[in-house]
Computed example of a mutant assay.
Amino acid sequence: MDSDSNARSAAEFQPLYAQVKALITRRIASGEWKPGIMIPNEFQLASEYKVSQGTVRKALIALEAERLIVRRQGRGTYVARHTSERALFHFFRIVDLDDRRIEPWSRTLSQKSITATHLLATQLEIEPGTPLHFITRIRCLKNIPAIYEQIYTPVWMMPDLKITTDAQMVDEMYVIYQDQYGLTIAHASERIAAVAAAAEEARLLDIAEATPLLEITRVARDVSNVAVELRISRCRADLFRYAVELN
């Protein structure tokens, strides 16, 4: 297996299937294989990387488990494409008090450029002073203003990002990142805290000031594990809650 020998050399301690998985991931991350495209079949990949089809199959199974590819019986294997439904199912954890998933819609309040503070830079793993897009929005559930969000993403990744304000928006931000800039969100880490609603948040969410809110701080990363977005969501805890299944 001689393709991308530097990557393989750096990961020689990994099982062979993991090395193949890493090489395929690099091709997705680089944009060589774009979202929605069909990739070579197991036989072709095995021949290219000079490994067995079983090794390739194991690598593809691992990639499918990470939702980086989609395998369609009798049709081939494709690079996964974000849809609003797919992004919601994978990343949106808010349910109603009966544990029912609710499809949100969003209204952007503002968008402007700022420079990263030390704290923002640490969270996004960039240098302080790096230009950022800063977006604020309200997400509605059951037509109720339920979540106040602040979104930060580096300008250099998406120089001309423009989110229309005031209009109702159904598409997930992750769909926009992928469709317009080729950035596929593959992983995210979240931290949860209880906070009190500030005056502006209380006004926007139609609740009393100091009402308890659930704060979810998420850092979303692309296929190469580069931080693409910091999102701070403050959610009403009286009508909705956070739910996650652990395997």
Score class of each variant (00 low, 15 high):
residue 176 I to D: 05
residue 165 T to L: 08
residue 180 Q to I: 04
residue 115 T to Y: 09
residue 201 E to F: 02
residue 175 V to W: 01
residue 136 T to A: 04
residue 169 M to Y: 02
residue 163 I to T: 07
residue 185 I to S: 03
residue 128 P to Y: 11
residue 135 I to K: 04
residue 194 A to I: 15
residue 116 A to M: 06
residue 122 T to A: 14
residue 138 I to T: 12
residue 198 A to Q: 13
residue 136 T to C: 03
residue 130 T to C: 08
residue 169 M to L: 14
residue 198 A to I: 08
residue 118 H to G: 01
residue 164 T to K: 14
residue 189 S to Q: 14
residue 123 Q to M: 12
residue 183 L to C: 09
residue 180 Q to E: 15
residue 184 T to R: 13
residue 155 V to R: 15
residue 112 K to E: 15
residue 122 T to I: 01
residue 177 Y to P: 00
residue 155 V to S: 11
residue 117 T to K: 05
residue 181 Y to Q: 09
residue 175 V to R: 06
residue 194 A to Q: 14
residue 200 E to S: 13
residue 180 Q to W: 10
residue 194 A to H: 10
residue 148 Y to F: 14
residue 187 H to W: 11
residue 170 V to G: 00
residue 178 Q to V: 05
residue 170 V to L: 11
residue 117 T to P: 03
residue 181 Y to H: 08
residue 111 Q to G: 10
residue 118 H to I: 14
residue 124 L to K: 07
residue 117 T to E: 05
residue 190 E to P: 02
residue 194 A to P: 02
residue 159 P to T: 06
residue 133 H to Y: 06
residue 151 I to Q: 02
residue 160 D to P: 03
residue 175 V to I: 02
residue 157 M to V: 05
residue 166 D to L: 12
residue 196 A to H: 12
residue 189 S to F: 09
residue 157 M to T: 08
residue 117 T to Y: 01
residue 169 M to A: 13
residue 132 L to G: 09
residue 118 H to N: 13
residue 116 A to C: 03
residue 170 V to A: 07
residue 194 A to F: 08
residue 163 I to Y: 01
residue 137 R to W: 00
residue 171 D to V: 04
residue 187 H to C: 01
residue 202 A to T: 06
residue 135 I to D: 04
residue 167 A to S: 14
residue 161 L to I: 04
residue 128 P to K: 10
residue 170 V to C: 00
residue 111 Q to D: 11
residue 126 I to V: 13
residue 186 A to L: 03
residue 111 Q to Y: 10
residue 135 I to G: 01
residue 165 T to Q: 14
residue 129 G to E: 05
residue 113 S to N: 13
residue 113 S to M: 14
residue 181 Y to E: 08
residue 159 P to D: 07
residue 183 L to E: 10
residue 186 A to R: 13
residue 159 P to Q: 06
residue 187 H to G: 00
residue 182 G to N: 05
residue 127 E to V: 11
residue 182 G to P: 03
residue 192 I to Y: 04
residue 113 S to F: 12
residue 125 E to W: 01
residue 197 A to P: 03
residue 149 E to G: 00
residue 191 R to I: 06
residue 185 I to K: 06
residue 188 A to G: 07
